[in-house]
Design a binder for these strands. Sequence first.
DNA 1: GTGGTCTAGACCACG
DNA 2: GTGGTCTAGACCACC
Lengths: 124, 124, 124, 124
Amino acid sequence: MILLDYRDKRPIYEQVQEKLERLITSGALEADVKMPSVRSLAIELSVNPNTVQRAYTQLEQEGYIYTVSGKGSFVAPAAEWQESKQRQILEEWCELTVRVMETGITKERLMQQMEDIYKEADND
Amino acid sequence: MILLDYRDKRPIYEQVQEKLERLITSGALEADVKMPSVRSLAIELSVNPNTVQRAYTQLEQEGYIYTVSGKGSFVAPAAEWQESKQRQILEEWCELTVRVMETGITKERLMQQMEDIYKEADND
Amino acid sequence: MILLDYRDKRPIYEQVQEKLERLITSGALEADVKMPSVRSLAIELSVNPNTVQRAYTQLEQEGYIYTVSGKGSFVAPAAEWQESKQRQILEEWCELTVRVMETGITKERLMQQMEDIYKEADND
Amino acid sequence: MILLDYRDKRPIYEQVQEKLERLITSGALEADVKMPSVRSLAIELSVNPNTVQRAYTQLEQEGYIYTVSGKGSFVAPAAEWQESKQRQILEEWCELTVRVMETGITKERLMQQMEDIYKEADND
DNA sequence: GTGGTCTAGACCACG
DNA sequence: GTGGTCTAGACCACC
């Protein structure tokens, strides 16, 4: 389910966090579904439970999951994070697009790329 | 000219490198223009000369500047880095665009944003 | 294991880098074997850890080793560097061969030398 | 006659020395021909006379030229340097060939390259 | 004055 | 314990 890259320079907990976040924001994990327990995920990934715990803590702080004492962690409803996530990533996207433009890539070229990306997604 | 963010997780030398790289790739610094000397930039930014040196070394390895020992460092002609830079940043852009799409932002919304970005640049 | 030549004009970090690179490309160090830690090698060579660090950083940038933060550095699989290494060294070899030829050494003489080199390697 | 590369990391005097040495060892400059004066070559190359002087001094020490007070410098007869030069460059060539072999390039591949190099030289 | 290298010693994040 | 970053201060070659 999650593949770790130990040669990646980012810390392990950040990779775990990012993969889980993507599974949630892309809709692969639906609202109120139970997340795997810290311990079981740690075993599955062969990492220290502290590492998984840290990822979960971050996800909770950012509103992607919520924890029920003694029950476990659950995926938060999209309503709680979707808007801020969209605002954040859109801002990031605009900044990157400006930089792309500065390197001399034309609007037409980008439009074409974007068409391809959305078309490929439709086929899946 | 360059503002450092000490709260940023990224190392200082990388921030310096990235800012200078952007000044070069955006055309703000023209080919064969002399870069500030390692020492003077270090003083201006209140960092150790070694830190600036490291940024310069990286920029040289990636082809954005060239060094004439005893004279200083100079901006490399665009021909030497433009193509690889465009390929690199376009790849980055595509990955980010996929993630944007996954959060449910429509193609039309992105198209509009892109129009705005390119239009604003034309007015400058 | 590694001998430094302080009379050599080349910097120390480059000597270290070159020796390690040769150990790797010649197959003496196999893929995924752990390299000595920065600190231990620094002590062994009686140089500053920063110097060894620099050699390792370069080796990583050129794809000969990979680093797992907190664990150490490891030899990268040959598949990742062999092709580019062969291209690089073959180019170097051709240039040198041209210069050898210019000094008046005959093709037959070189052929003989080459036979000897490959024959000696077979006996090992 | 000589093209300097200011972006080369080697010092200027070394580039001048190396180019002149090649002109001599390849036979382009014949024995007892007068070398350009330090001053005139310095002007031609737009460099400091000290730089040219240093190159000449080195060339003299290594036996490629000789100086007659008040007359200038002259190309030394091949007899004085050819043997040691051939020995030196052949040794260098053998070491490099060993390294080439270690990277897994076959003898046949090198033979082919060598044929090409000598054939191309014959056509000139 | 310029870039380049090196040392000594410190601090941090990571797992 | 590991790699990574940073500072302070020194020395060198080059032109």
